[in-house]
Nucleic acid binder design. Structure first.
Lengths: 238, 238
DNA sequence: AAAATTGATTTGTCATACAAAAACTATTGC
DNA sequence: GCAATAGTTTTTGTATGACAAATCAATTTT
């Protein structure tokens, strides 16, 4: 896990939410099924009902469960799950095949990022462009593979932000996870890819020039390259 | 508001979360700023601290705030907000200009839906196709404009599901809101648009025929039409 | 058979107390 | 003077016990 800007909170309710959340994502508790009641969790974990309730509240807020008196907490259908929530995505990530997960992130990036790059080229303001430039500079300056990934993620998030559409922001999380996996898969023999720099530079140039079409093309090329990076790697995921 | 499948919970903690959430989205509490502490909310609302804490937990889970002892609850930067969460999107929707919001949903739909339609055409299984067919049938059978919108939303959500990529599911919420607005804006003089049926049928045929390219084209045409629907309407949003 | 009543179970809310974290302040030692 | 240190204070975190409210299931009543 190369990048981690926020230290994870380790309160009891957070830990319990993580525990239950992971198990839901793993399929131990299936959609439509019921969770043990609050008292049972409390006994199982040696915590008060207060903690249990706050953990369940967290899961409710993320769309994983729904609670009603006399009934209990029911796992909601997957369509209700807030998969683009950072925690939920983490739990999902821990539960599924790495290779398949990466493929689905790539699929989504194919949909979003070229169009987002176009929007960014057409609508970015100076501050947003500056942020993108900084991220690119940091990619070039990066000494370690880890620094490089962090700057890479920041580049793509800056691009998303430059598209000036709030509804696109949650996608940053997907990119973050995707690049994190890419790092895990390829970093060993690919410490500082010069080609990646060039590909990102082309995106930056297009955005700087406010050239939407070029931005699309550059981003697609970048994603082509990303696809290629993963292919030759042996499956070592879970 | 034409479609509402789940009755809204009216527990105290839910109401308080909504109250605070709306005010954050409205900008009354700005990112980086602090919320009043738990005791203050309790006094202001005449509720126990338990309720306040569960409300705040909800907001934490949605990425709106972050709490630390001695400091309090800080509003997080917008990039952390889970805007694709149903509640957050509702609050956002209530806070922004309707016309601008609709435009941003259209922008996102332009990115996602054609590609999603392609994936659906290529990867859908029989059950998923059947769901799509049913939704389309319901669109045709719809007696009222309201029924029509519900079926329309279901059609697009079924399409999303047929793409077989969990990461795309959260987008259903955007479509739901977008079509809801469209309904509010245009339904008066556009009770049952035959053209819309035809456009959706083309998408369905492409998916049925597993023709990815045709699916993209059909969806783009559909979105062109959607754009056109809004344009001539006078601004009556807030 | 349908409707109203009762009973049991689970979540929802309240009140109070104390623990733990973290910023702030004062003190100490050099 | 300054830095490390130790205490102080404020705010959230957790525990406990009690009761209210919602709701499903069975029972009774009509």
């Amino acid at each position: 896990m190369p990048h981690r800007t926020q230290k994870p909170k380790n309160n009891l309710n957070t830990k319990l939410a993580r525990n239950i959340g992971e198990r839901i994502l793993l399929g131990e508790f299936q959609p439509g099924g019921l969770l043990p009641n609050e008292a049972a969790w409390g006994k199982a974990f040696g915590t008060s009902r207060t903690v249990v309730r706050e953990a369940l509240k967290t899961l409710m807020a993320k769309g994983l469960i729904e609670s009603r008196p006399k009934v209990g907490s029911k796992v909601l259908p997957r369509s209700q799950w807030n998969i683009l929530d950072r925690d939920v995505l983490d739990w999902h990530h821990a539960a599924v095949d790495r290779q398949a997960f990466f493929q689905s992130t790539q699929e989504v990036r194919r949909l979003i990022e070229p169009g987002a790059a176009k929007l960014a080229a057409e609508k970015r303001n100076v501050a947003q462009l500056a942020r993108l430039e900084t991220a690119f500079t940091n990619m070039k300056k990066a000494k370690t593979a880890q620094e490089s990934v962090i700057a890479d993620v920041e580049f793509h998030e800056a691009l998303m932000a430059a598209a000036n559409n709030d509804l696109l922001l949650p996608f940053g999380i997907i990119i973050e996870k995707a690049l994190g996996d890419l790092f895990d898969f390829t970093t060993h023999r690919n410490p500082q890819p010069k080609q990646a720099i060039k590909l990102h530079e082309r995106v930056l140039l297009a955005v700087r020039a406010a050239d939407g079409k070029a931005a699309i093309k550059a981003m697609n090329t970048l994603l082509d390259n990303t696809d290629g990076l993963l292919a030759p790697v042996s499956t070592k995921g879970k």
